[in-house]
């Protein structure tokens, strides 16, 4: 009986960890960006935003999209919006720091 309970727990744990379908448009957009389909990802992040799902994650990812496209002004604006929503996020802070370094280097090259 005890072994059966342990086995059930294990199965439940494994099933919850198994790869799942994308929970939202947002997760799907992330996957698209990872595969290099940035325009498609951008469209979906924007769609999530227009639905009112304003999170630091969306603004951060949009900032990366703009940075990649060379639109540094929009990238900075998005990073700032993200930091306002989640100022303590270490990954976000790391991204913003790298972005600032990148801009600084560009200025020096000019």
């Amino acid at each position: 009986m005890k072994n059966l309970a342990i086995l059930t727990c294990l199965i439940l744990f494994i099933v919850s960890c198994a790869p799942h379908r994308f929970k939202s448009e947002f997760d799907f957009a992330n996957k698209l960006a990872q595969q290099g389909l940035w325009e498609e990802a951008y469209f979906r992040w924007k769609k999530s935003l227009s639905r009112g799902d304003e999170t630091a994650a969306i603004h951060n990812n949009l900032a990366i999209y703009y940075e990649r496209a060379g639109n540094l002004q929009s990238a900075e604006a998005e990073y700032k919006k993200a930091l306002k929503l989640d100022p303590g996020n270490t990954q976000l802070l790391s991204n913003y720091k790298k972005f600032k370094q990148h801009i600084e280097k560009k200025k020096n090259e000019n």
Binding site: S24, Q34, D53, A57, N60, I64, E67, A82, Q91, K98
Partner: peptide, 11 residues
């Protein structure tokens, strides 16, 4: 090459 973190919702 630049490297950034893509954030997941709720993170």
């Amino acid at each position: 090459i630049q490297e950034r973190y893509l954030l997941k919702n709720g993170k």
